[in-house]
Design a binder for these strands. Structure first.
Lengths: 191, 191
DNA sequence: CGCCGAGTTGAACTGAATCAAGAAACGTGG
DNA sequence: CCACGTTTCTTGATTCAGTTCAACTCGGCG
């Protein structure tokens, strides 16, 4: 929780009362590698702030293939935003890739913080806007770059992540098969 | 402007003072087909609400190819969010595809509305969240669907847009070439 | 020791890109 | 209103990146 408070305070000040409110609506939880935080089909209204570890969200297509939407490490938020926003059952699954500590919020209660504590708003907005920017970049990269270039960028953006992830986690994030990723790795090693 | 006010009021109430403030920081503008609202490299801090017509944002890669990030029709916002958020020069170009009417805001002033009029916050947040949801869906669709399926979905989402767009606008949105799109169309017509 | 899941490698295949040429649509000026 | 040039769209042939399927290697672990 300290991590989150600290992060908020890089954007703005936060009264002790608002801090207390955040505490009161959140739960610190630790998950083991392989645990599922949100499962496809469940009704969920949770949102997680990652303070340590590594998670990913993915969906499963009609052929049973997984497609990774997001990795979340230190300081990132993760949830099924599609389900949360529409009040639908989850279409995503959120999985713990290594032992992780997260702060769990009820999404609605977290929004309601803005009524007594409007001071929280700039942080909220900043988080949403940064999220949009990263998604825009991802879409453009997917349109512009080759698979090998995308993998290179991925390694820059998540330098340590390969320790925790299976090959197919990364491949399904990049939109390629594990075999292709394996060949790209080989190609890169030879240069 | 009526359109925007109406849209805001579907989410929440809005005081006459807040309405007046929105008026005071915005300019209604009409652009002809082909006009450029934001050009790559410019310093921009504008954001547009489309009340009529059709616009698109795109970037140009190192080979000179265009990649469409977004189409905006009635009731959508469009801007270069990457540039706005980072205070960088624009990496995107925003182009008018048919005669369009937009409401232009200075992005910063639009955010500052929240200080005197926090009542505007739910609309703002709702807009951002809906934007995130649509981007998540787009990324997943790009990972899961074939080019032909994506084109089919595109036609559902933007049923009238083909009247205003060039073939390559759509192709570069779907991440394929104009030739491929042409063949997909042919394929679909034969069935 | 042998099994099992993950990663790698190979060969054949495929969807889409590229390159090139022709057809259709469009706008402009006479 | 037609003729012309330009742009866009279509079609074909070829190439290529990435997939698929299948076999093999490696490392961890009961």
């Amino acid at each position: 929780m300290k991590e989150l408070i600290k992060k908020i305070k890089t954007t703005q000040s936060l009264s002790p009362e608002a801090e207390a409110y955040l505490f009161s609506i959140s739960k610190k939880k630790t998950y083991a590698k392989g645990e599922i935080l949100i499962r496809e089909g469940q009704n969920v209204n949770k949102i997680f702030f990652v303070t340590d570890g590594c998670l990913r969200s993915y969906c499963i297509d009609k052929n049973g293939k997984e497609h990774t939407l997001q990795f979340a490490i230190n300081g990132w938020w993760i949830s099924d935003y599609i389900a949360n926003y529409n009040n639908d059952p989850a279409t995503l699954t959120i999985e713990c890739l290594k032992e992780s500590t997260v702060i769990e919020f009820n999404a609605e209660k977290l929004n309601q913080i803005l009524i007594p504590f409007p001071e929280y708003e700039p942080f909220k907005r900043n988080t949403l806007e940064r999220h949009i920017v990263s998604l825009h970049k991802r879409i453009l990269n997917q349109l512009i770059m080759t698979a090998a270039e995308r993998y290179g960028l991925f390694l820059e953006q998540y330098p340590d992540i390969e320790q925790y992830t299976r090959n197919y986690h990364i491949a399904s994030y990049l939109g390629i098969t594990t075999e292709s990723l394996s060949r790209i790795r080989k190609e890169m090693a030879m240069e």
